[in-house]
Write a protein that binds this DNA or RNA. Structure first.
Lengths: 156, 156
DNA sequence: ACCTTGCGGTTGACATGTCAACGATGTTAT
DNA sequence: ATAACATCGTTGACATGTCAACCGCAAGGT
């Protein structure tokens, strides 16, 4: 265990990393919202409905794939329903709720795809070297949720 | 101009990058909030008051250094004032407002520093290779706000 | 049958952020 | 002086997130 406070240089790495993310992510989101009116959450939901479910998914499936809480999703769907992007109907065969993309939602999504694509290329991919991509891939692996390690360790 | 949609692999890079950030950043914030009750914004404000201003700064200076809107800062300070972390008083010599850290705020900050330090080391720095640090540094440079380029380009 | 438990989803209260409008106070031009 | 404008900050309305409590319904155990 290293209990020393981190150095000024190490703190700088942290700040650089945070601000890179905020700058780049902010630009992508701004382009998307500005040109289509969709937030990142909106897009994520519509995208999954369209690709994984051919237009419809159970609410729980969305919760799992988005890694959101059910509460957050429920609130968000209520707002999206009000805007006419999706609708909800109870499942007949089992308990649960189907979320269905509306035609308005589908056409907004189709408009958004190229916008998102361009934004990610322009604000993110175009900035990356091969080495950066390697680093991103490796870090993502190391930063993954580690469900096992805590359990493997015997409770001392 | 590359107008092609981005590939599946490129989209994966984007998703990996986003989830790394969210995982790591979420862990750091959770540690800090759990052990000290401070949010990232709280810490940023108290840190600047303490380091840059020896306990006090003008609100506008905070706006500039945090890169927040004045509205966001105003709302946030109102909440922090209610919690007894800071207080505000109008400047006498010129217009504007002084934000002053309270003793409660200062001691909470002092408690938080080692917690933040440890969390950044454990959840972030310990995951990085030398190459990652290089990539982070380079990307941060490329992702910086580019105020000049738009002005240098003659309006077509 | 009855009770408990767990799952799927909703709700309300509250924290956090954004945006546009406002107000008060300085600066500048005429 | 006064009109126009910029600066500094507040406010209210609303979007987004989090948390804990709740409700309806299923599945099991007794």
């Amino acid at each position: 265990m290293n209990k020393k406070m981190i150095s000024e240089e190490e703190m700088q790495i942290w700040h650089m990393w945070k601000s890179s993310y905020k700058n780049i992510f902010g630009r992508v989101v701004k382009d998307m919202f500005g040109q289509t009116g969709l937030s990142e959450g909106d897009f994520g939901i519509l995208d999954r409905l369209d690709l994984y479910g051919k237009g419809k998914l159970r609410q729980q499936e969305l919760v799992d794939s988005m890694d959101w809480t059910k509460s957050r999703l429920s609130h968000h769907l209520t707002r999206m329903e009000k805007r006419g992007l999706v609708l909800r109907e109870p499942l007949k065969t089992e308990r649960g709720v189907q979320v269905i993309i509306t035609s308005a939602g589908k056409s907004t999504l189709d408009d958004a795809r190229p916008v998102v694509s361009m934004a990610i290329r322009e604000h993110f991919l175009d900035l990356l070297t091969e080495q950066d991509i390697e680093s991103i891939t490796n870090l993502a692996e190391r930063a993954k949720v580690k469900s096992s390690s805590a359990c493997k360790t015997p409770r001392s």
